[in-house]
C-alpha cells in the first residue's frame, strides 16, 4: 500500500465526514486543526475509519500528535507496512 493510496483514502473519508471543509483542496501539508472543519471528535471518527480500513490500531496518545494530513498518511503507511 503506497502513500498515494492512503492519502486518497484519507481525503475521501475526511470529505465524507466533514463536508463543510474550510479549504477546498486538501494536500499532505493541510493542517487538520486550522485548515479543515474537522473537530477533535470528528478527527477521532476519521482515524477509526482508517484503522478499520487498514486493520491497524493507532494509540490515543498518538492521535493528538498529528498535525497535518501528511502526518496521518505517513504514520499509517509505516504501520501498515
Amino acid at each position: 500500500m503506497n502513500q498515494q493510496n492512503i492519502f486518497d483514502d484519507t481525503i475521501s473519508i475526511i470529505k465524507a465526514y466533514a463536508p463543510d471543509l474550510t479549504k477546498e483542496e486538501l494536500t499532505m501539508d493541510t493542517i487538520i486543526n486550522t485548515e479543515t472543519a474537522v473537530d477533535s471528535l470528528g478527527f477521532v471518527l476519521i482515524i477509526s475509519k482508517l484503522e478499520g480500513k487498514y486493520n491497524i490500531r493507532i494509540p490515543d496518545r498518538q492521535i493528538s500528535k498529528f498535525i497535518t494530513i501528511g502526518d496521518v498518511v505517513k504514520y499509517i503507511s509505516k504501520k501498515a507496512s
Partner: peptide
C-alpha cells in the same frame, strides 16, 4: 506563522490546539 503554530500545536493535547488563525 504556520511553522510556529504547528510547533505549538504539536505540544498540545488534541483538545487544546489552535483551530482558528
Amino acid at each position: 506563522m504556520d511553522k510556529y503554530i504547528n510547533a505549538f500545536n504539536s505540544s498540545q493535547p488534541i483538545y487544546s490546539k489552535i483551530s482558528i488563525i
